[in-house]
């Protein structure tokens, strides 16, 4: 898998460049590396070729939202807010961590330090 590594500051500029070149936004992938650092992958498609941007971030340093460039990213950014507890400042349609999860689950379930598999509030 080819991926171009960028820093969080370059992200919005890189996305704008992608859009100008006619790339279609496919999706984002977030992976928890350890308790506090996360890897974000931005996947784009042009003429059936995938290209990926890769960046590393942590909980304390939010990555700017790319919804101003690609509006379609609002769903996946909200999903990552829900599942990983990251925040994306500038998100066009912010559900504020209620896209998927209700108040029963407040820990981000995909984080490495997430509590037990099954939340205790479930009972």
């Amino acid at each position: 898998m080819r991926a171009e590594t960028i820093t969080p500051d370059q992200l919005v500029g890189a996305c704008a460049r992608m859009k100008a070149e006619g790339f279609r936004f496919v999706t984002m992938t977030c992976t928890a590396m350890d308790e506090n650092s996360f890897e974000l992958l931005y996947h784009f498609d042009k003429n059936l070729e995938l290209s990926t941007l890769r960046l590393t971030t942590s909980k304390d340093s939010p990555v700017h939202s790319i919804t101003a460039v690609y509006f379609a990213a609002f769903l996946v950014e909200n999903e990552i807010q829900d599942l990983f507890g990251l925040r994306f400042p500038g998100l066009a349609l912010d559900y504020n961590r209620t896209l998927y999860l209700d108040e029963e689950i407040r820990d981000a379930p995909f984080c490495k330090n997430a509590a037990a598999e099954k939340n205790t509030a479930a009972e």
Partner: peptide, 8 residues
Amino acid sequence: REAYNVVG
């Protein structure tokens, strides 16, 4: 049933 968001 083991998924975190499933009540049962």
